[in-house]
Write a protein that binds this DNA or RNA. Sequence first.
DNA 1: TATTGTTATACTCTATAACTATA
DNA 2: TATAGTTATAGAGTATAACAATA
Lengths: 152, 152
Amino acid sequence: MHGDDSNGIDYSMLQSRLGYKLRRAQMVYFDVFFEACAQEGITPGLFSILAIIYHNPGLTQTAVSVALDVDRSAMVAAIDKLEGMEVVERRKSKNDRRSYALYLTEQGKAFTERLNRKVVAGEEAFTTFMKDGEKEWLLDLLDRIIRARRDG
Amino acid sequence: MHGDDSNGIDYSMLQSRLGYKLRRAQMVYFDVFFEACAQEGITPGLFSILAIIYHNPGLTQTAVSVALDVDRSAMVAAIDKLEGMEVVERRKSKNDRRSYALYLTEQGKAFTERLNRKVVAGEEAFTTFMKDGEKEWLLDLLDRIIRARRDG
DNA sequence: TATTGTTATACTCTATAACTATA
DNA sequence: TATAGTTATAGAGTATAACAATA
């Protein structure tokens, strides 16, 4: 092992690059997610929105966008789609008539739970080659990378 | 710690999701890369192309696209740009007149080496909160995820 | 003045399909 | 017939700026 991948290409400058590996790993993960959820019309981004609303009912669109670190303008089409699927509903906020409070419908809750089971099951494909505790370690280390930004 | 992030949002369904963490970590990494290389007009994708050609001079565009797992049609604009920056050159292949052999120019080699030093230095921001050997372990684990696809 | 949701817009990335010139 | 590079095109994803309603 000195920079060569199995296809005979020398990856020397990339094989020890965190960013390159993160991107490739994410691409693989996306394929697994896609197999599990594409037929439901759900992308990773939509799933993350459902997951946030599931555990934080009543949030505004802007609050969800902040939680997921995307622009609030991107939420409009996303919530439109989820509302069209009848899994999310916008309720007019009483105290602030500019904003909506977001809730999952009853079927939206069941839908999200089912999706979550599929995603968790899909992830088990990755744990087969992990030792005990290795996944928790990975999640913790990724967290440290994520927090590196806001903690300086 | 039971699903809450520091902003008061409950991330229960996401905090143990590999895909979510991979994406967020990659976003943070991209910011660091951007600070280091954006002024040079280089994105992570362009850097990966330079890195491949650096260690594998003479590859065709298609070979590079296969090495990086992107469509060959995406290579055209990328190589156009790198050629415009005079860091890569297309040389007509002798044996197969359909294809080009890709090489770094002299300044392209120096440019790539300089970029590599910047990227490696930028990555050190992430190693400050890693224990000895943890980065190598992370790279190895990400590799196992990446290989999970082609190895089944 | 500031903020929420919205719209219009644009830019990047990426993939597909079809073309051309070679093989 | 198959392949390399190219082009046109389209779809996601995401960001900015501006606007109306409301705070």
